[in-house]
Design a protein around this nucleic acid. Structure first.
Length: 379
DNA sequence: TAGGCCATCTGGTCCT
DNA sequence: AGGACCAGATGGCCTA
């Protein structure tokens, strides 16, 4: 018997045995997980009160009809799913059994008399083994679901340690991985260079190969002009042709406090047409490999960035309830460009005014007061 | 409506 | 035998 906790209903939602899909989706909406207005079906792992030891694995409730069968029914009755939602569990089980029998009569070949491909249509054997196989299949589904939840949980943790984490605008999985790879690469190159990095190159590396929406998000978090970091279809960074500092900051230098987007410069239609940005400029000196994304034909053979400081990288976040413990060193995000939070020992200096929005620290380095966090990174 | 993204189910494969 | 892992298939939701 699974231990009871307050998440019993949530577990039933996850199990899909008693609540229809629309209810599950509403549960996901309730926890506020969305990306560009699209609600995900992700469970709220970030919320400790929703996490109990019965969350995963064998502690999932396994009584009740298999959700796989419910899904089959759901697809078969998609037209009147609202009516099926009103059925009680007993009727559901009865209907599922009937549909199972129909499936069994359909045989093991598709329309072209070819072996079945992978997919939801199940091959079933005799009745005695069918019951057992159903149970095993059900348990395997539960494990697989838990495994994927764990994978998503890890991905969510990754989202929190790459720049531009946002609970309301989540990066997609693939974009999270790309940004994380770029981030590791950029940090590694910075450390291996052993000197003050080129900031434009750093941000360009971050945005390398990212989609335009993600580039916009990263640039928005950094309060930069995303147009200067867009990549073309080959993954090469497009550059507007302006000076690096102008490219970094779309707003006029005399208007530091003007948020991007308010000045209108970000969308300035009079901007020069893009031209292909050459890394022979500020980028090249700090990056022996010009790109983490295959801009160099040799990159595929060197997928791992060079490791520095024994490979230790960690991020320092203020008030990080679930991932910040133990992170005593690393990158600290400042709350806004131009703030005095840029420490003297910061490796990052974008301009004499110190307008780069974050600074980097490595182990053994001291860092200033931690009362400031970059809200633009982690909102 | 097409395409992107996602969760889920499913069967195959590998390993213990 | 059973679990972990993987990838294909499917359907839902959302945006352009």
């Amino acid at each position: 018997m699974a231990p009871h906790c307050d998440t019993e209903q949530m577990m039933q939602v996850a199990e899909g045995t008693e609540l229809p899909d629309v209810w599950r989706q509403r549960s996901a909406v309730k926890v506020g997980i969305a990306f560009h207005g699209r609600n995900m079906l992700t469970l709220p792992f970030e919320e400790p009160h929703l996490m109990c030891e019965s969350r995963f694995g064998a502690n999932y409730p396994r009584e009740g009809a298999p959700e796989s069968l419910e899904k089959e029914e759901h697809s078969l009755h998609a037209a009147d799913s609202s009516n099926s939602d009103m059925r009680d569990a007993e009727d559901d089980i009865s209907d599922r059994e009937e549909e199972e029998e129909e499936d069994e009569r359909e045989g093991d070949q598709d329309d072209d008399m070819l072996p079945k491909k992978r997919g939801p249509r199940k091959k079933r054997s005799g009745k005695p083994e069918s019951d057992r196989s159903k149970v095993r299949r059900h348990e395997a589904n539960t494990r697989e679901r838990s495994r994927m939840h764990g994978l998503n949980d890890a991905l969510e943790s990754l989202r929190k340690v790459v720049p531009c984490y946002s609970k309301t605008q989540k990066l997609s999985k693939i974009e999270t991985l790309r940004l994380a790879k770029n981030y590791i690469w950029a940090l590694s190159e910075t450390l291996s260079a052993g000197k003050r990095p080129d900031l434009l190159a750093f941000v360009q590396t971050l945005c390398k190969g990212l989609s335009q929406p993600t580039t916009n998000l990263v640039a928005g978090c950094l309060q930069l002009n995303a147009r200067n970091f867009l990549t073309d279809h080959n993954g090469e960074v497009m550059f507007s042709g302006r000076s690096p500092y102008d490219a970094m900051y779309s707003y006029p230098a005399s208007d530091v406090n003007t948020p991007p987007g308010h000045s209108g410069s970000t969308l300035d239609s009079s901007a020069k047409p893009f031209r292909h940005y050459s890394y022979n400029g500020a980028y090249e000196p700090y990056y022996e490999n010009p790109s983490p994304e295959g801009g160099s034909p040799h990159f595929d053979g060197q997928l791992s960035p060079p490791m520095n400081f024994n490979g230790i990288f960690s991020l320092k976040h203020d008030d990080p309830p679930d991932y910040g413990k133990g992170s005593h060193y690393g990158m600290r995000y400042c709350s806004a460009p131009g703030r005095a939070a840029l420490a003297h020992n910061s490796m990052y200096r974008v301009s004499p005014e110190g307008r780069f929005p974050y600074d980097l620290h490595v182990r053994s380095q001291s860092f200033p007061a931690q009362g400031e966090v970059n809200g633009s990174f982690h909102n």
